[in-house]
């Protein structure tokens, strides 16, 4: 199977902000979380993928087509939910569905109705009159049933209540199970990242930190409690220290060093994904 997305050496400068160089490949059947601080370039990357902004250099291919090229077939294979839906305010949910559904060959009306019913979305009210949570629910109801192989979601759960978040995860899991599909999701919600993602693509202030498989990341970090404080300024693998506590992202090297120096640790533990993300995104690493 060919990858759905191939991003190669992409760079983009907006005022003082530099994004990239970005390299990212998305395979069918995977969910990738875009993780980063506010303003790290997640939304910009999605806009570049949708050709809503131009790259300064590098290339983005979706379904083997360059997104800034003349051919536009790739557009029918992607659904994109941005943080703000422009031009929707004056229309009701019913209106919007009538505009959107005919554009998508594989539109799933049943799924749309199910989401609307479950989330109790009022379809007869103007988009602008809905609460932020309801707007987000309606946007999801109008995005997921398009049934395109690739789904791009920019902060889809920021305003959702807890039951809605849980239900959305079930919907997305079921949606993924129906074929060769992939999701790219930008989110600050740790639950989304833990429960949905296979890969974490980490951005820090426009810089690509890496694309990590979830377990590879959690298995890589270990915390040690030493018998006494270290005198060395830095030891192999160390990424964080607080008195007798040392965190390493190369546990083998760290243990080897400690053993060689005859330094003992009283306890060791793994790190939570939240802590790992915080370490990856902290400016002084």
């Amino acid at each position: 199977m060919k990858p759905f997305v191939e991003i190669t050496q992409v760079k983009k400068k907006i005022d003082n902000f530099h994004l990239g160089p970005i390299n990212l490949t998305i395979e069918p059947g995977t969910i990738t979380s875009l993780v980063g601080n506010n303003g790290s370039g997640k939304s910009t990357l999605m806009k570049l993928m949708m050709n809503l902004a131009n790259t300064d250099s590098g290339s983005i291919n979706l379904f083997n087509q360059n997104v800034s090229g003349d051919e536009e077939q790739w557009k029918s294979f992607v659904s994109y939910q941005s943080q703000k839906m422009i031009g929707w305010d004056a229309f009701t949910g019913e209106n919007l569905k009538c505009f959107i559904a005919p554009l998508y060959e594989h539109w799933d009306e049943q799924l749309f109705q199910r989401i609307v019913e479950h989330f109790a979305i009022p379809l007869n009210q103007r988009f602008s009159k809905l609460s932020q949570g309801s707007q987000q629910k309606l946007t999801l109801a109008l995005t997921i049933p398009r049934n395109t192989p690739l789904l791009l979601l920019d902060e889809p759960t920021a305003y959702l209540d807890i039951p809605a978040k849980t239900h959305l995860m079930d919907i997305l899991v079921e949606w993924m199970d129906q074929g060769e599909r992939s999701i790219i999701i930008a989110s600050h919600q740790i639950e989304d990242i833990k429960k949905l993602s296979d890969y974490l693509f980490v951005l820090r202030n426009g810089e690509m930190i890496g694309n990590f498989e979830k377990e590879a990341l959690t298995e890589r970090y270990k915390r040690y409690w030493l018998r006494s404080e270290l005198t060395e300024s830095s030891i192999p693998g160390e990424v964080f220290r607080d008195r007798v506590q040392v965190v390493s992202n190369h546990p083998k090297e760290t243990e080897h060093y400690l053993q060689e120096k005859g330094l003992q640790w009283t306890n060791q533990s793994s790190l939570d994904l939240e802590e790992i993300i915080t370490l990856l995104l902290s400016p002084t690493r």
């Binding site: 969910i31 899991v173 199970d177 498989e213 979830k214």
Partner: peptide, 16 residues
């Protein structure tokens, strides 16, 4: 459960 379903429940990637 489907691979994706179990991945969600156990908070583990589908690869694993």
């Amino acid at each position: 459960p489907s691979i994706r379903g179990l991945a969600k429940d156990l908070e583990i990637s589908v690869i694993t």
